[in-house]
């Protein structure tokens, strides 16, 4: 497959609402704050937006179709809207494709979820209904299985993951020691409670355009593996390797080990950072999640777009970072993978 010659897009504005562990507001109220914030950041209004791409998942919202709750607040009435039932970064890539195709000049991307409103872990219902749901397989169980596979040839893994989780929690404003992580209760062995980024309510928004901006979207790629974890080699995030290959080709990156000022992976657990680093080929000296990544609050569906928002803010604050990778993932054990490459203009 040939590599398309795609002009950089502008990240004209970003906004967020949360993350908060339990936000008492309604989903439209949460989303509205993120959208207004992104539009203000882009110094534009609803009328300047040509199309909207939203990301939400019916299961998490307890609603079919989950975008009907946000139609007004994202400005999608009498306007083309596409809903992505996956991670918000996938929605951003969809919006980028619309812009690259020349269909629109400005597209608003919005992702949200509110896990605090659900009674329990809903992910078993996101598994195959015939052979996995009857067994109660959940995303948490799949993460435990994947982590276990990684410990096979790496006896020091659990200690390293405890240190990483402690570092990320501390960076996110919750000072934590590796000993506290290792002493926390088991969630799905070998993973422990404080190895898991806390789930949170929130919404993220970004205004992408074909115009000038201080931060540019230079490349993007996404990929999907088989749904059943039993079909996959869980030691690798092969889908992310393929997604990265596509994004690097578009952005003209030959050596990812030396390409990024920092990377923003959407990792719910510390073992996923090992998978991320190996799949993307980013170097050992590349700073990872300097503000704590998802350990500051992981909003399901919004997590990947939150990394794009964070990357944009980082590049604006520190243009010398030059280039930042933002990542998103969805599905059990990293089934779906997406990444975007952002650059300071």
């Amino acid at each position: 497959m040939s590599t398309p010659d795609l002009a950089p897009l502008g990240v004209a504005g970003v906004g967020r609402s949360g993350p908060r562990i339990s936000d008492p507001r309604s989903i439209p109220e949460i989303v509205l704050e993120a959208v207004e914030s992104a539009l203000a950041d882009a110094t534009c209004g609803y009328d300047d937006v040509d199309a909207v791409v939203t990301a939400s998942v019916d299961l998490f919202d307890g609603l079919t179709a989950s975008n009907i709750a946000v139609t007004e607040v994202v400005g999608a009435v009498m306007r083309p809207e596409t809903r992505i039932a996956g991670d918000g970064l996938l929605a951003a890539i969809h919006a980028a494709c619309q812009l690259w195709a020349g269909a629109y000049e400005t597209v608003l991307v919005v992702a949200h979820s509110k896990p605090s409103m659900a009674p329990a872990d809903l992910t078993p219902w996101a598994m195959d209904p015939i052979h996995l749901q009857p067994l109660g397989a959940s995303f948490t169980a799949c993460a435990g299985l994947q982590a276990r596979v990684l410990t096979l040839d790496d006896p020091d893994a659990e200690g390293r993951w405890a240190e990483r989780a402690a570092r990320l929690s501390t960076l996110a404003g919750r000072p934590t020691s590796p000993a506290e992580v290792s002493a926390s209760s088991v969630v799905a062995s070998p993973l422990r409670e404080r190895m898991r980024a806390p789930l949170a309510d929130g919404a993220y928004a970004a205004v992408l355009s074909r115009g000038e901006a201080s931060v540019l979207l230079r490349g993007a790629g996404h990929d999907l593996c088989a749904h059943s974890p039993g079909d996959r080699d869980l030691r690798h995030w092969d889908g992310l390797t393929r997604a990265a290959g596509r994004a690097y080709a578009v952005a003209g990156i030959d050596d990812p080990a030396d390409a990024f000022g920092c990377v923003e992976p959407a990792c719910l657990y510390p073992h996923e950072e090992d998978l991320f680093t190996a799949a993307t080929g980013t170097g050992p000296d590349t700073p990872v999640s300097p503000t704590g990544g998802l350990f500051g609050g992981a909003v399901p569906v919004g997590a990947g777009l939150s990394r794009l928002v964070e990357a944009t803010r980082a590049l604006r604050a520190e243009p010398s970072l030059r280039r930042v990778l933002a990542h998103g993932t969805w599905g059990p054990a990293g089934q779906g993978q997406a990444l975007t490459i952002l650059e300071a203009a």
Partner: peptide
């Protein structure tokens, strides 16, 4: 056994709607 975990997080059983007792072992 290619992978295993012991899940300590209670989940709802899709067959019954009842909470499944935990912990339980899950394997590949």
């Amino acid at each position: 056994l290619e992978a295993w975990t012991v899940v300590h997080q209670p989940i709802l059983d899709g067959r019954t709607g009842e909470e499944r007792p935990s912990p339980y072992g899950m394997g590949l």
